[in-house]
Design a protein around this nucleic acid. Structure first.
Lengths: 337, 337
DNA sequence: TTGAAAGCGCTAACAA
DNA sequence: TTGTTAGCGCTTTCAA
């Protein structure tokens, strides 16, 4: 059986000692070896099709080249682009991505975090944080660098990369007030998520600066079902609402359903705005006006932030990196009737 | 610095030799060690918070516990559920998933396949195959077990797990003929994908057995743009088409666009059927009738097939496992006008 | 500049 | 049943 070649084979063929071959092949150390031997070794390596064994290297150097990526649920449409951005950036940097999905389960979160570390991941990218996750907070003190994506945890000095949701929500409120709306309701996601809080806060600020009275309903989850229930309740209580800002696009889907059920038209009777610009919302009827988030870039930026840290970068240089969002105006908003 | 404990530390504390400690901690070998020493060792391990180093273990045993998963593009809506199914099954079996995305690039495919193997992945799940991918075909002879998902490669004895697309397409044609249609066009995806061929073949068979004349257009990609272009061309040539079967849902989106552009209504003038039942197609206008594929189950089944092989299962027991698909009838199909 | 030797932490073959 | 020994493939001191 033609075993894959080791450094020893290369050294033998080049007529040098394995140690020398190792030095010759290490690009970080030019001048540690004669140019002529370096050439001989490289040649032998090429002829043999030699590739260093990452496992053996890791055992020696303690660097595995593995980055753990923890996500809440890959089937949530916002995540694939983020994971994609992370993954392409890390592969390009010679790292491999170990993906783990918590299924939105806190217990699973801490299990998987431990598992990822046990498997010697050099760094962690975490998209599952709730404001109170202890397991995530503990990462701040730990010895494996971690970066949070999208979701932040309270009171921990962990770097975060996310979209500038606040700016997006403010733009959405401005858009609606610009269209003459002032009875604008906001439907939140679960309060244990930082994204919910950030968006809600922005809504409240924008409303107060426009002098309009805020109107908030809290949802138990970022789902269409929650959006639908909240909207139905809202319409029962108040018949003067002319615009609804949904915590995210999934909830906006539920808003559409509830409006249709109540015999209200969108946007003729009620304008609707979502958040995230997930795939295909432009193809809904009506096409959804929403806050677009640069998901893939967020993933890439998170990966780069982690790489910087792994290369000994300053730990405090780039806490809280917010990437620009933008309001995409489509057919679900119009001038107040 | 309180270095994490090694097996040596555990052995020392338990007063035994490292080799003995190793045996005591190995769950696969009961009876290789006295119950009393086993207990002592386990106790010591617990007290020290010992966790075996997976890297060292891998170097020794050649088994990394890592499974490489190669996908064409995570942002293609069919993939997240598949990856999810793979990932949850493998974690439950104590394996970790290394995810790599080729971005539909053949060169990247072979690079990443090599990289995954260099990183000592014990097994591979490949969703990127084209009918001719050499790099994938080479896996058949290789020493790391591989399972294909959804996309097959020609002339290679690699196990495949996929949805039963043929049955789905036949059901779709039957559904349409049952509604009185006989001018049913089929829009294919790229011919280098096995899924395209399987679906097309099924369409041709179903048409011939119903005695209707087949009407096929070939698309260069499974995209909305392709679906749109093909439909526009089709409508230019033939004004008698009353139903269109799209290669997948993305193409069906394009069909919707082209019909609207041509001033034709769906389903009143033309019925449309998609394939995949990707998220949110039920919310299109009209809701899309489509062939649903059990994506998550396919992922799970692929993972289990690989695990079986890793445990020395027969290599030929389960080549070509097809999971049942089903036609989901929604609003885009109706009785022929 | 190169060779020699040790060792990362673990497991498996062999010996006692 | 347990201890001993060797070695997975690599890097990195230390000497020459």
């Amino acid at each position: 059986v033609p075993r894959r070649p080791t450094l020893r084979d290369v050294a033998e063929r080049a007529g040098v000692h394995p140690g020398t071959a190792s030095r010759a092949l290490d690009p970080a150390l030019p001048g540690r070896v004669t140019e002529v031997t370096a050439r001989r070794v490289r040649e032998a390596a090429r002829e043999l099709g030699y590739a260093p064994d990452p496992i053996a290297r890791t055992l020696r150097t303690r660097r595995s080249g593995l980055i753990g990526v923890l996500i809440p649920d890959l089937m949530n449409p916002v995540l694939p682009p983020i994971v994609r951005g992370i993954e392409e950036t890390l592969w390009d940097a010679g790292r491999a991505v170990v993906l783990a999905d918590t299924d939105n389960d806190a217990a699973r979160e801490s299990t998987l975090l431990a598992e990822l570390q046990a498997r010697r991941c050099e760094g962690l990218i975490v998209a599952t944080a709730t404001r109170t996750s202890e397991a995530v907070r503990a990462l701040a003190g730990g010895d494996v660098p971690a970066v949070l994506v999208t979701r932040d945890v309270d009171d921990a000095d962990l770097p975060l990369v996310a979209g500038d949701d606040a700016a997006g929500v403010m733009a959405a409120v401005d858009h609606l007030t610009g269209l003459g709306h002032d009875r604008i309701a906001y439907l939140t996601g679960p309060l244990e998520l930082s994204t919910t809080i950030v968006r809600l806060q922005a809504y409240l600020e924008a409303m107060s600066s426009s002098g309009a009275e805020p109107l908030v309903r809290h949802g138990e989850a970022f789902t269409a079902a929650a959006g639908r229930r909240l909207t139905a309740e809202l319409l029962d209580d108040r018949d003067d609402v002319t615009a609804i800002l949904a915590g995210n696009d999934l909830m906006a889907l539920g808003v559409y359903e509830a409006l249709a059920e109540a015999g209200l038209r969108c946007p003729a009777d009620v304008s609707v705005v979502g958040h995230n610009d997930m795939p295909f919302v432009a193809r809904l009827q009506p096409p959804l006006t929403t806050v677009a988030i640069p998901q893939r870039e967020i993933g890439g930026a998170a990966a780069r932030a982690l790489l910087r840290r792994l290369d000994g970068g300053a730990a405090d240089a780039d806490l809280r990196r917010l990437l620009p969002t933008r309001l995409v105006v489509r057919g679900s908003t119009m001038r107040r009737p």
